[in-house]
């Protein structure tokens, strides 16, 4: 079975771009707090989702709808509506994290295929078996803390599909278990579907260059001409133990392209590309490149051939293979 390429779509235009560039599946979310990329101006209305799914299906691609935040106490209606709208629109699966949302989906939408979001941080056979047995989860997105060897062992011990991130933004923290953003700003992925929200980001210039502040906390400083990272809290520069460093993570993005064959051998079903907040140009380029790489691997291509296909993406970028190689830890 060939690897499935799961690609991001922050907007209907990005969905069309991803499908045309060769995505087997596209994932997207509604324009509200039910999904973990709740950035201003992004995401889909229920009508746009219907239209997007029609387009994807007409081109032989699937659409997975991320409803992967934790429902707000006393206000679960938005999450219930998201599940109902996803099913009505003909979504091929929904990607969930919250016990309450999973429970509701399993009870009220028995025909809807359930995937477990990386936000649920299920990293052991016991936890995965629990989600599969209890809610009928069919696929689990691997937490970005596991090495390829660990994924292989995990896949041998479970009987659901697994999906692994291979490209894009990288959380050094275990996703779904991080409150750094709410400590600084009051908003976080689990609470509101955003991390380091743009409305709390401010740049200010002084004698020492430009400071990037997140709700008043300086998360980095740049001299003139120095490249800036996206102002995410955990990718900032801090002082600890007398040293100034990118303590949590360097401003790099994940690129596990060189590990596609190894991940396939480790039993991964699907490869996921991060970036619902990225533009059409980015989506098109990355999806096209990964699709070519996946096909080359299917055709028994050598690592050299695959490496050549991906060279354009790797060159000049600041990238890491993340936790997939144990040295990252």
């Amino acid at each position: 079975m060939s690897l499935e390429l799961v690609c991001p779509a922050g907007t209907p235009a990005a969905l069309r771009a991803a499908v045309e560039a060769g995505a087997h599946s596209v994932y997207c979310g509604f324009r509200d707090e039910t999904n973990a990329r709740n950035f201003p101006g992004l995401n889909f209305s229920p009508d746009e989702l219907v239209e997007g799914i029609r387009f994807a299906h007409a081109h032989g691609a699937k659409v997975l709808v991320a409803i992967n935040t934790f429902a707000k106490a006393g206000a679960m209606d938005a999450w219930k509506a998201a599940l109902a709208n996803a099913e009505k629109a003909g979504a091929d699966a929904v990607i969930l994290a919250d016990l309450a949302v999973l429970d509701h989906a399993a009870t009220h939408h028995p025909d809807l295929r359930l995937h477990l979001s990386v936000q649920a941080a299920a990293a052991t056979p016991e936890a995965i078996a629990f989600y599969a047995d209890t809610f009928g989860v069919k696929r689990v997105v691997m937490p970005r803390v596991l090495s390829v060897e660990e994924i292989a062992k995990l896949n041998a011990a479970i009987d659901v599909e697994t999906e692994a991130f291979v490209f894009g933004g990288l959380c050094p923290m275990t996703e779904g278990r991080c409150s750094l953003s709410s400590y600084a700003t009051g908003k976080s992925p689990n609470l509101t579907g955003v991390c380091s929200p743009p409305e709390h980001v401010a740049y200010s210039e002084d004698r020492n260059g430009t400071a990037t502040r997140l709700n008043g906390f300086t998360i980095d400083r740049f001299g003139a001409g120095e490249q800036a990272g996206y102002p995410t809290l955990c990718k900032g520069r801090f002082m600890a133990g007398g040293k100034t460093s990118y303590l949590f993570e360097d401003p790099v993005s994940l690129n596990a392209a060189s590990l596609i064959a190894a991940l396939a051998k480790a039993g991964i079903t699907a490869l996921k590309i991060e970036g619902r907040q990225r533009g059409k140009g980015y989506v098109t380029e990355v999806v096209r490149t990964f699709r070519a790489a996946v096909e080359a691997i299917d055709a028994g291509g050598t690592e050299v051939e695959v490496g050549r296909l991906l060279a354009g993406l790797v060159e000049g970028g600041r990238q890491t293979s993340g936790a997939y190689k144990k040295a990252w830890r």
Partner: peptide, 26 residues
Amino acid sequence: FDGDALFFNRAIAVSGRTDALVALRN
């Protein structure tokens, strides 16, 4: 340029409500 490139690329200086610019861009 997309929302991320907007920040990576320091050829642009943004002040005030960064979220509004991200929304407009998206």
